[in-house]
Design a protein around this nucleic acid. Sequence first.
DNA 1: TTTGCATATGTCGGTCGTCGGCATATGGTG
DNA 2: CACCATATGCCGACGACCGACATATGCAAA
Lengths: 111, 111
Amino acid sequence: MREPTYFILAALQDEPLHGYAIMTRAGELSRGRVRLATGTLYAALDRLTGEGYVVSTHEEIVNGRARRYYRLTPDGAAALRSEAEAMAAAARVVTDRTAFSPAPRPAAGLA
Amino acid sequence: MREPTYFILAALQDEPLHGYAIMTRAGELSRGRVRLATGTLYAALDRLTGEGYVVSTHEEIVNGRARRYYRLTPDGAAALRSEAEAMAAAARVVTDRTAFSPAPRPAAGLA
DNA sequence: TTTGCATATGTCGGTCGTCGGCATATGGTG
DNA sequence: CACCATATGCCGACGACCGACATATGCAAA
């Protein structure tokens, strides 16, 4: 899962949001790192719907314009948490380093 | 930066490695999550060299076949650390759920 | 008043990293 | 002998993402 997709799901953690609100929320959560292009957002929403990670809940008409709300499915929430754990583990590989000696260790058996 | 690229750089943290060793090391570090295709590896190595993140140090001839070793540049090491921090921060958005900004939090939990 | 931005959804062509298959070569194991 | 691990590299295809464009309203500044 790529970063833009991750932050789209993360934006939906608390409550259902419509597309535009997802964009701004993803920007907040990522501290400006991710600025979703509309092409990315709406394509991703369709894709994630097809994958069963999000569902459209309802529509509001505001100023003659539809707002389509999306929420996380249990599958989507699980995928998000799983991805977060993988990212944390990946980060640890770099951040948790014994600052002492990079004595090259001869490939301890990992599995 | 995508995950395969990240683990290529991470594989080079301790010592210079040649391509094939990078593949296996990246697999170890990611606990099997990333299995680099050769197409990914050698293309990425060229790209990262062009970006100044890695450099080729030397070549060994083993069994009539060249082994090309790569190491991280200071720029590459900095980019790797920066990426690790961004990933850790992104993971925290999901794993630590103390809502920090303008979103209401469902009272479900934490205790 | 007209310009421009925020809100809001959506399409389309192009880019770029990744993937998988193929090529090539040697040495060890079943 | 076949097969796998080791080892590097090319090439076509795919998919997520990006930026531009289209469209429409409300509001504030120039």
